[in-house]
Every structure is written in structure tokens, then in C-alpha cells.
Design a protein around this nucleic acid. Structure first.
Length: 306
RNA sequence: GGCUAGAUAGCUCAGUUGGUAGAGCAGAGGACUGAAAAUCCUCGUGUCGGGGGUUCGACUCCCUCUCUAGCCA
């Protein structure tokens, strides 16, 4: 069987164009691997390919409302179901997106504890963290699960809370992680990372943010806020949305908000590259040195010799 | 042309009666298994504008030149 092709890379590097061209060439379909494109109505800010411009089917976008929480575990379940459907029909699946954890959740044998995750529990821990402080919360974890506490920085409250949740489910963050030091693939896959010289990438990011504003990102955010998405746990954390919400509240000027969107996008791109570098299965393609057709040819060539 | 205030890290600046310099921001690197566009950690050598002088020693004092801003002609 041909390997599943995954395309990732920093934001604004041009992943979608390559994935679309590749899918068109192979008669395949694209599965988005992006944590924010799953939300309905978040289109401009997540750079979703507009429906009218789609030449191939795009899956795993618009799967939940912005008010609903979503997660890597749910994505794993839903995206694998989608992937299996395509494979059963002998349609080439192309994964394309910038969320490294989601890609690994689909392709590797990451397994999440099966317990129910209630938002109420998480909110309880958040309130606890606020009242006793990050260090005290970390101490609490240290008493319940010393191994996990040892591998999480005390200030990393998000992860401390997650480890506490896992204790409640009878699992251990540290044990879970130790078991997967060398990931095993559940799907045979070829992983490509599109990259570009930093300065050129940053220019593209800035230009794309300006284009998003021109395309009506502010109106999109207004519409989402009107639907009550402002308090959503996950979707409101998206870059481009939280800053414009701050502007609407009067906390920032519009110029400041746009500047912040650009800066956070740059830092996000940097984190994406860090994530990709540590996985030596990745095959890197310099988009500064080739155009879309050339990138497609490189991917095809690298995917044949299995 | 004259006077005044400046010129120190990519940017904005600090530098205490002379002992060759440090903050914020920007930026860079890293971690990452149910929030991941999230969350967290680490990283500061630069002709102190150029040249000369005083001094054991000058970013610091003196002279001079260059540039910038403002004021006066």
C-alpha cells in the first residue's frame, strides 16, 4: 500500500497550495491537521481554503462549533475514521496542517486514557491554581505523582493540571510519556515539512495578516462573539481572534492588535519548526528554492521509493 | 553661522563623584501525549559616533570633527 503523505511546516509557508496540487495530481483528498480549522465559522483567520476555491475534498474542517471544546484525543478518533474511509475507497489521503501534536496523534500510536474529561474538573483545577498559586499546585501533583511532577516545570500550570486530571483517571503523565519515547507508526506515512528562510517567512506572515484584515477578519470575529464564542475554552485561543476580541473590548488599538497578531504568528511559526526538527522521520523541503509544482515532484519522488 | 541637548545591543534607553557596560522590547534555541494557534524553559561582546589629549586606567573629564533634534540669527 502507498504511504499516507503528511505535509506540515510553519504557518504561511504555503502548505495548502502544495497539498491541493498533490491531491489533484493523485486524485486524492486532503485531511486538515489543524487544531483551529476544525471550528465552524473560523475561516479567514485560520486560512481555510474558501469552499469556492477547493479543487479537492477537504476533511476535518468545520467539524464542531466554536463554543464546543475539542482536543487531540477527539481529533485522533475523528481523523482516523476519515483516513480509514479514504483508504478503504482507495483514495489517496493527504494530511495537511500545522498542528504537530494532531499529526502524531493520527499517525503514531499515541493513546490517551479513555476516561471522560469533564470541563468542570478542569475548571476546578484552574480555580485552585488561581487561589493557591502555580507552585502550590505543582506541590500537590508532587504528592500525588512525584514522577510526573519531576518532569513538568512548576510554572507550566496547563500541564500540571493535565497531570492531575490523569491522576484522577488512574493514569500517570510521566508513565504515559515514558512508554512512547520512540513513537511507533500505526499508518505507513511519509512526513514532509515545508520550510523557508526565516526573513522571507516572516514577510509572508505579515503580508498574510494584512490580507486577512482586508478580507474581513474583524467582521468574522464580531460574528463569532455574537454567537457567544468569546468564552469558549479552546477556539478563543486562536491567534487573530483573541487579539481582535481584545480590540473590541477596548484593551488594544486596532494597530496594536494587528501588530500582536503578526508577532504571535511569527513565534508560533518558530515553535512549529522546533516541533518538526526533533522528528528525524521528517523530510524537509525548502520552499524558498522551489515552486509548488517542484515541491509536488519532490514529494512524489520521495513517496515512490518505499 | 551661533547656542543647547543628544549619539551606548536590531529598537528604546540606563550607566550612580573616571576602574573597559545592562534593562525592556525585538530576536534566537529548546521542551511538548486529552487546551497544542495552547502552555512552559533557556539565551545579552557591543568599533559605548570618529580622531586626539589628560590619567596607572576614559562610556565617564578636556579638545576637535561628523551626524541628529530643537532654539536663535
Amino acid at each position: 500500500m502507498k504511504p499516507v503523505i503528511s505535509i506540515t511546516g510553519p504557518t504561511a509557508v504555503g502548505k495548502s497550495a502544495v497539498a491541493d496540487a498533490l491531491a489533484e495530481h493523485l486524485g486524492g483528498e486532503v485531511i486538515s491537521t489543524d487544531a483551529m480549522q476544525v471550528y465552524r465559522g473560523m475561516d479567514i483567520g485560520t486560512a481555510k481554503t474558501p469552499v469556492a476555491q477547493r479543487r479537492v475534498s477537504l476533511h476535518m474542517v468545520d467539524v464542531v462549533d466554536p463554543c464546543e471544546p475539542y482536543s487531540a484525543a477527539l481529533f485522533q478518533r475523528d481523523a482516523r475514521a476519515c483516513l480509514d474511509r479514504l483508504l478503504a475507497c482507495d483514495i489517496a489521503p493527504i494530511l495537511c496542517g500545522g498542528t504537530g501534536l494532531y499529526i502524531d496523534a493520527v499517525l503514531d500510536d499515541l493513546c490517551f486514557p479513555s476516561g471522560e474529561l469533564t470541563g468542570a474538573q478542569r475548571e476546578r483545577y484552574q480555580r485552585l491554581a488561581q487561589s493557591i498559586g502555580a507552585d502550590a499546585l505543582h506541590d500537590l501533583l508532587a504528592r500525588r505523582d512525584p514522577a510526573s511532577a519531576a518532569c513538568i516545570h512548576p510554572h507550566n500550570t496547563h500541564r500540571v493540571i493535565r497531570a492531575l486530571e490523569m491522576c484522577d483517571e488512574g493514569a500517570s503523565y510521566a508513565e504515559q510519556r515514558a512508554g512512547f519515547t520512540s513513537p511507533r507508526a500505526v499508518y505507513q506515512a511519509r512526513r514532509f515539512v515545508l520550510t523557508m528562510e526565516r526573513e522571507a517567512l516572516y514577510q509572508r506572515i505579515d503580508a498574510r495578516v494584512d490580507a486577512m484584515m482586508h478580507d474581513g477578519l474583524l467582521d468574522e470575529v464580531r460574528g463569532l462573539v455574537a454567537q457567544g464564542a468569546e468564552d469558549a475554552l479552546t477556539s478563543r485561543q486562536a491567534i487573530g481572534y483573541k487579539e481582535l476580541i481584545a480590540y473590541m473590548r477596548g484593551d488594544l488599538s486596532l494597530d496594536e492588535a494587528v501588530g500582536l497578531i503578526k508577532q504571535r504568528s511569527r513565534r508560533y511559526a518558530k515553535r512549529q519548526l522546533s516541533w518538526c526538527r526533533r522528528d528525524d522521520r521528517n523530510i524537509w523541503i525548502d520552499m524558498g528554492a522551489c515552486d509548488v509544482p517542484a515541491a509536488v515532484r519532490l514529494i512524489l519522488a520521495q513517496s515512490e521509493d518505499a
